[in-house]
Nucleic acid binder design. Sequence first.
DNA 1: ACTATGTGGTTGTATGGTCGAACCATGGCG
DNA 2: CGCCATGGTTCGACCATACAACCACATAGT
Lengths: 142, 142
Amino acid sequence: MADDRELQEAVARFVRAFGLHRPDQTPCGQPIPTSEAHALGELARDGALRQSELAQRLRLEKSTTSRLVTQLINRGWAERAPAPGDGRGVLVELTPHGVNAAARLAEARAKRFSAVLDRVPEGERAGVLRALTILTEAIDET
Amino acid sequence: MADDRELQEAVARFVRAFGLHRPDQTPCGQPIPTSEAHALGELARDGALRQSELAQRLRLEKSTTSRLVTQLINRGWAERAPAPGDGRGVLVELTPHGVNAAARLAEARAKRFSAVLDRVPEGERAGVLRALTILTEAIDET
DNA sequence: ACTATGTGGTTGTATGGTCGAACCATGGCG
DNA sequence: CGCCATGGTTCGACCATACAACCACATAGT
């Protein structure tokens, strides 16, 4: 199919336009690395997580995750605690400070995204959301 | 709107699922850095480009672009030539070798993307493509 | 013409990202 | 009680990007 080629270019353009190639800041312009932002999001939404669980969700290697968590801790946003029932594991949890940071981040993100959504024609919004989800699922199955 | 939040998460999941956080390889598993792949794509599609033009398309700083081009040259995929009519400029062009590499890359990409598209329900395909385009345009306007 | 300012590139510096391998501690099992 | 698997940490190597300083050429204005 020739759709392939179009999809490729569409994805590439999207990535670039959204600034996803800049590792040092979120697409929302917040001066915090993308990975940290994603981690913060997961922890804010679901509470304490095992480090290994976090790695899985972020699709990162355990070594990378370890370092990432250390960075969050250095910012005073998270803490490590022994995992209950498993002496090897580590539980990562946001500090009140971290919860706060996550909230600020979410707000900035919401602002940016709603600005973007505003430019999306009313009737297309649901479709856009739906398409991204479908695409992600398709990728996951591959 | 609450759509914001959903869009955020949809994008984040998409980025991770597609492996866009790995700068050292394309989402298609090719052992070539994402940026080089994108550059190769532009040059293969539109022929020789001014380095500044390439920077603009890839949304990169001129310094980054300069280095990127140097890498392509080191691989034997591109050449620099003086820009006609402007003693300052540089024209970047693929070598036959580079054209070849671009073709191989495009093939691998097509393979991956068509696999993904296969998982997208028939009736949704057009919508997915359309959504990405609309979203990219919306981002550009922001 | 000659100077002032702008544009295109290159190089140096600093930051951030990711992985894989080596290594340690704890858990689970025959 | 050994043996192998699992969760983490640390180290080394590689890539990406931006910003600033610096050079060369272009262009406009006096």
